[in-house]
Design a protein around this nucleic acid. Structure first.
Lengths: 144, 144
DNA sequence: ATAGATGCAAATGGTTTGCAGAGCT
DNA sequence: AGCTCTGCAAACCATTTGCATCTAT
């Protein structure tokens, strides 16, 4: 399988966009991260590596990466969009603790299959979906 | 079953808040609506009935209604939060056409059950969930 | 050479908040 | 009277955009 950076380069080339050091650095920073970073958090990490990079470039690059299907935007219902690398990763949804913010990735073929089926029944061509389960984790319940 | 207005009154009373004409009017306006209104759209409808009401009151009332479990916020991925009456309604999710905005309410016990089960397996007490299926409807595909 | 990229700062747009005056109870 | 409310306008805050300057190709 191709490296994400290669995929990004190919995407940029195809769109007549340029592979700049900033863009490479931003992608590299996301890929190195385990967590789901908000653009603010990502910006901080990026800035630590090259302090001359601006917020706007991070936002702009993130948009490209989403469009290139290399990263995916997440909505944890706290007002900030987070991002996670999605290229080469299996699709999954999230189970989020609304107290401590912990989140667990879930993958359930039963649900995925039903979603497709439901869309088809309604004459829709499914392009994407979001599923978030919100609850309180064991630790946070005990902690009380 | 109690009327939504009664439920709202009870909620307000319990919190030592007041049942004002504005609040009643806003709730009444939402209830009369079939569609899922954004706060902006709701504000317009409310204003048509009483032009002295301000945006802020609509936002503040919406928050109360959500907290009282009378209406539910929806995220159709277009940057605006929409609201739908939820009191006395069966829970359902949404299938949204990203071209024309059409949305279909879906209810699938298989998925609901799996969600509960997944949460339990992870030690979570599920409090809510969001599921949105995005796609393109038949009409919009043909229209091309 | 030149279309595209960057950083900065200003703009946007939905939503929230401070405040002074008004309204319930 | 003593709270809570309201409308207004200003404030917020994540994200976007205009612009003059740089840079990858």
């Amino acid at each position: 399988m191709k490296e994400p950076q290669e995929v990004f380069d190919a995407y940029l080339a195809e769109k007549n966009l340029k592979a700049t050091p900033q863009r490479r650095l931003i992608l590299d920073t996301i890929l190195k991260q385990k967590d789901h970073l908000s653009s603010e958090e990502l910006y901080a990490k990026v800035k630590a590596r090259d302090s001359s990079i601006g917020q706007a470039t991070v936002y702009r690059t993130l948009k490209l990466l989403v469009d290139a299907d290399i990263v995916e935007p997440l909505d944890f219902a706290d007002g900030v969009t987070r991002y996670e690398p999605s290229y080469g990763e299996e699709h999954h949804d999230h189970l989020i603790c609304t107290v401590c913010g912990k989140n667990i990735e879930i993958l359930d073929p039963t649900i995925e299959k039903r979603q497709e089926q439901i869309a088809k029944e309604q004459g829709f061509k499914l392009s994407s979906h979001k599923m978030y389960l919100y609850g309180i984790c064991n630790d946070c319940r005990k902690g009380k």
